[in-house]
Design a protein around this nucleic acid. Structure first.
Lengths: 197, 197
DNA sequence: GCGTTACCGTAACGTACGTTACGGTATGGC
DNA sequence: GCCATACCGTAACGTACGTTACGGTAACGC
């Protein structure tokens, strides 16, 4: 036998480096050499950890989902349904620089998904999971609503949040933190007034 | 003297080809060779019409804005403020394949703007122009609202519409035409119930 | 109709990409 | 302590990109 490596740790560090490069230089700047430089290793090591560039992309995409998912879990578990819904939507918006970075990465993956079927599948899966999460919360807030209305409201809320994220990534002045919170709160007020409630 | 060319027509045809490639193969597939092939000419002619690739990108971005702007003008002019607002928002969503193509191009430019300051400036300018348009319409529908509320409502509506567009570009099943119209109409209902009205 | 000139196609250049092959190196078992 | 082997850095390959230089060609003025 010979020396053993911590493969999981390498994967984590490399996908973090991928993420960092993606956030800083955008999709065109995401090269294996840039990732290797950011991670402090060589392209050879990168391609010994991941089979090819797409495998690295897929892993970084999963990492992004895991991060946002964990934050959503934390926000959701703290409080009654109404507060949980608001907390989940707020954390999905991008008040901090860290989350603004995530928004840039998210936009990059969205654009990449337009030409890459694998990334497109991942995007659909993760986004629908997010919609399902919001649907469940809406149903908890408004138990009397039919499921179809809950689902429709959830897709609206998700589209609003992701739209805010995407637009704030390029124009943080117009889509300020305050504007984002305002938009989300206003949309949530609909839960009290719409659909015959 | 020698032969004269129709520079404006060439620019139009080339930026249309740029657009077509962008919609079909995404941002990574947008190369000068692909544009030339789509336009039925050579890369030499492309770079005789535009100084470099970025000039072509900028022109294509302006073309996208002009298209959406013209459609918005047409929708806006047909009817009273309330109907005009709804028409402008509906046309901004993507019920047809042509507009779904535009949505893909829009996402591509959004991602490119993350790394290209020139494209980022263009994006901010055009998006703010769109927000201003919606703000004016909201103010026409609700004349008694303070301008700040009109602006906040407009940014929300724009974020919702662009979010729907972006998400529908990758997942047209979840964000169907019906779901998009439903989301817009529900958001518009807020104009009657929110902000003390 | 002919020379001049604007225009465009061809082909090459330099660069950077993803990927691969190979050699060195460190590490675990014995 | 030494060997075998898993691991990684180096360097190269082929490709495709943006860009440039140059030669051919078609059209306008006279």
């Amino acid at each position: 036998m010979a020396r053993r490596r911590d493969l999981a740790d390498q994967q984590r560090r490399l996908s973090a480096a991928t993420w960092s490069v993606l956030a800083e230089r955008g999709l065109p700047g995401l090269t294996l050499r840039a990732v290797a430089e950011r991670a402090g290793c060589t392209t050879g090591m990168v391609l010994h950890t991941f089979a090819d560039k797409q495998a690295l992309l897929v892993h970084a995409r999963e990492l992004l989902h895991r991060r946002t998912g964990q934050r959503a879990d934390a926000a959701q578990s703290a409080g009654p349904p109404r507060a949980a819904l608001r907390a989940v939507l707020w954390q999905a918006a991008s008040p901090t620089e860290e989350k603004r970075e995530e928004a840039r990465v998210w936009v990059g993956f969205l654009a990449a998904a337009l030409a890459d079927p694998v990334l497109a599948d991942l995007h659909r899966t993760y986004n629908r999971r997010f919609v399902d999460r919001i649907t469940t919360l809406v149903a908890a807030v408004r138990p009397t609503w039919p499921p179809a209305d809950c689902a429709a409201t959830a897709t609206s809320l998700v589209a609003l949040v992701e739209g805010l994220n995407a637009l704030a990534a390029v124009d943080p002045a117009t889509y300020s933190d305050e504007a984002q919170r305002n938009a989300i709160d206003t949309a949530l007020d609909q839960l009290d007034t719409q659909r015959g409630q």
